[in-house]
Amino acid sequence: QRITLKDYAMRFGQTKTAKDLGVYQSAINKAIHAGRKIFLTINADGSVYAEEVKDGEVKPFPS
């Protein structure tokens, strides 16, 4: 399943989102408010992988 960072954070909370991605909650808040195009893939085992689309390139998040 693929979902935006904002939607994932709204569904699970910023604290869990940060923990799942290995970053601080403040980084999640800042990324959402900056309007960054970050998409999360939720794997069947429950693990989460995030990618950011920037300038036409897709890069892992966090980099």
Rank of each mutant, 00 (worst) to 15 (best):
Q1K: 11
Q1Y: 13
Q1G: 13
Q1E: 14
Q1A: 11
R2C: 09
I3A: 05
I3Q: 06
I3W: 15
I3T: 07
T4F: 06
L5F: 02
L5H: 01
L5E: 00
L5R: 00
K6A: 14
K6E: 13
K6W: 10
K6H: 11
K6C: 07
D7I: 05
D7M: 08
Y8H: 03
Y8N: 01
M10E: 15
M10V: 10
R11D: 04
R11P: 01
R11E: 11
F12W: 11
F12Y: 13
F12G: 01
G13Q: 01
G13F: 01
Q14C: 12
Q14V: 15
Q14E: 14
Q14G: 09
Q14H: 13
T15V: 14
T15C: 13
K16Q: 13
K16T: 06
T17H: 00
T17A: 11
T17G: 01
T17N: 01
A18D: 01
K19M: 11
K19N: 12
K19T: 09
K19V: 10
K19Y: 10
D20P: 01
D20T: 06
D20N: 05
L21K: 00
L21P: 00
G22A: 05
G22T: 04
G22M: 06
G22H: 08
V23Q: 03
V23R: 02
V23M: 10
V23I: 11
Y24E: 15
Y24D: 15
Q25T: 14
Q25N: 08
Q25I: 14
A27W: 11
A27C: 15
I28V: 10
I28D: 03
N29E: 15
K30A: 15
K30R: 13
K30Y: 10
K30S: 14
I32C: 03
I32T: 03
I32N: 02
H33E: 14
H33M: 14
H33D: 13
H33A: 14
A34N: 10
A34E: 15
A34T: 12
G35H: 10
G35W: 04
G35V: 04
R36N: 06
R36Q: 08
R36G: 04
K37I: 12
K37Y: 10
K37W: 08
I38P: 00
I38L: 02
I38G: 00
F39N: 04
F39R: 03
F39P: 00
F39S: 04
L40D: 00
L40Q: 00
L40V: 15
T41L: 09
I42T: 06
I42E: 04
N43H: 11
N43T: 12
N43M: 14
N43I: 08
A44C: 09
D45L: 04
D45V: 05
D45G: 05
D45E: 06
D45I: 04
D45F: 05
G46F: 06
S47P: 03
S47Q: 08
S47C: 06
S47E: 07
V48P: 02
Y49N: 09
Y49S: 12
Y49W: 13
A50D: 00
A50I: 03
E51Y: 09
E51R: 06
E51Q: 09
E52G: 02
E52N: 01
E52I: 04
E52Y: 04
V53M: 13
V53Y: 14
K54Y: 13
K54H: 12
K54C: 12
K54V: 15
K54S: 13
K54F: 14
K54P: 02
D55E: 11
D55W: 09
D55Q: 09
G56W: 05
G56R: 07
G56P: 02
G56F: 07
V58I: 14
V58N: 08
V58T: 14
V58A: 10
P60W: 05
P60A: 09
P60E: 06
P60H: 06
F61N: 01
F61C: 05
F61Q: 02
P62A: 05
P62Y: 04
S63Q: 12
